[in-house]
Design a protein around this nucleic acid. Structure first.
Lengths: 180, 180
DNA sequence: ATATACATGTAAAACGTTACATGATTGG
DNA sequence: CCAATCATGTAACGTTTTACATGTATAT
C-alpha cells in the first residue's frame, strides 16, 4: 500500500522530474505548508514507489557518493495519483498543541498567556503578509486542469487558515487583556 | 520528558480525577477535537506520569481484571501543567491530506473532485451547526481563570476553523462547477 | 583551499494505531 | 442469562524524527 507520503512525492513528480534531494527541499516550501518529510524518509519511500513500479529514475553523473538519481512518474504512477486525488481523505486525528494549551489556560498566569498569544498573532500576521505577496505575484486563477491551479487552491486555503488563527488569537488577547 | 499527550491527560485531570478508561472517552469528545489517543497509549503514558510523580491514583473496587484506578494530579503535576501552558508550542509539521489532494487536483476528473468537495462541505456545515448549538448552550464567556473558559476558547477556535474550511470548499466548488 | 550546497543512504529511538487478551459490573 | 459498558493491560506493526555515515560539485 502506498503511504500518503508516497502520494505527496508523486504530486511533486507529476509536475517535474526531481532527485530525492530536490524532493526534500520541496517538502520545506511550497509543499511543506501542508505535508513534510525528512530526506531519510523520502529516500526510503522512493524505494517503495520504485518497487511498486510507480516511479523510475535516470542515473546521472553528479555530486554524492553514488551520483544522482532523477526520479519521474511512470504511467502507472500517474494513474494511481489521479485516482487517489478524488478519494475521500482518511480523517486523521487533529492534534493542535496551542488549542490544547487554551483548554488548560484557566490555570495559567494571564500575563504570560497574553504574551504567548501576542507572539502567535505576530507569526500569523507575518505569514498573511507573505502569502498575500505570493498571491499577488501569481495573478489570476487559471483553469482547474492547469498545474498552477493546485498552487492557487493551496495558497487560498493557507491564507484562510492564517486569517482564522489570527482572529482567534485576537479574541484570546481581548479576553486576557481585560484580566491583566 | 513529559510528552504532549502527558499534558493532554493532565489537562483533563486538572478538572476532575478520572480512570484511564474515562480519559480515553474524553479523548473522543471534547478533547478529541484537538488531541486524540487510544486507551493503549493512555495507559502507557499514565505509567510514565506516575513514575515522574506528576499523577497518583486511588485503587477502587470496580470492573476489570484489576479493579479500577482513579488518577488525580499531584501538586508537582499541576505546577508542571501550569508552566507548560504558557511555553510556546513546538511547531509540529502541518499534514493535511485534503490540501495535498488540492495541490494535485489539476490532474483529476473535475466532476469527481466536485463531488469530493461537496461531501467535505456538507461535513463542515454539519459540524458548524453542532458547534453553534454547543456555544448557545454554554452561554456567556466566564472569567479566564474559570475552567469553562478553556471550553469557550477551544470551541471558538473549532468554529472558526470549520467556517474557514467551509469557505475554502465553496471556493473550490465554484471553480470546479464552471468546468463541468 | 575551503566552505557551502548537493547528493544518497542506514540505524536507533520515539510516537501512534491496530489487534490481541482478560475480566467485572450493570441493565434488560 | 446475556449483552453492553466499564476497565486494564501487552504485542506487533507502521510512521516519523534524529543521529550517524559518506562523498562530490561548485563558488569564493
Amino acid at each position: 500500500m502506498t503511504s500518503t507520503l508516497g502520494f505527496a512525492i508523486m504530486s511533486v513528480l507529476a509536475r517535474q522530474a526531481r532527485t530525492g534531494y530536490e524532493l526534500a527541499t520541496a517538502m520545506r516550501r511550497p509543499l511543506g505548508y501542508f505535508w513534510t518529510a525528512r530526506h531519510s524518509q523520502i529516500h526510503a519511500d522512493l524505494q517503495k514507489l520504485l518497487a511498486a513500479g510507480l516511479v523510475r529514475f535516470e542515473a546521472e553523473h553528479g555530486p554524492g557518493p553514488s551520483g544522482k538519481k532523477v526520479y519521474h512518474l511512470t504511467p502507472d504512477g500517474r494513474a494511481a495519483l489521479r485516482d487517489w486525488v478524488t478519494e475521500p481523505p482518511q480523517q486523521r486525528p487533529e492534534r493542535d498543541e496551542l488549542v490544547l494549551k487554551a483548554y488548560a489556560s484557566w490555570l495559567a498566569d494571564p500575563a504570560e498567556l497574553l504574551a504567548l498569544f501576542r507572539e502567535q498573532l505576530a507569526g500569523h500576521e507575518a505569514r498573511i503578509a507573505e502569502y498575500e505577496t505570493h498571491q499577488a505575484a501569481m495573478g489570476d486563477v487559471p483553469a482547474v486542469d492547469h498545474p498552477s491551479f493546485g498552487n492557487h487552491a493551496t495558497l487560498w486555503c493557507g491564507l484562510g487558515y492564517e486569517r482564522h488563527r489570527a482572529a482567534w488569537c485576537r479574541w484570546m488577547i481581548e479576553r486576557l487583556a481585560g484580566e491583566v
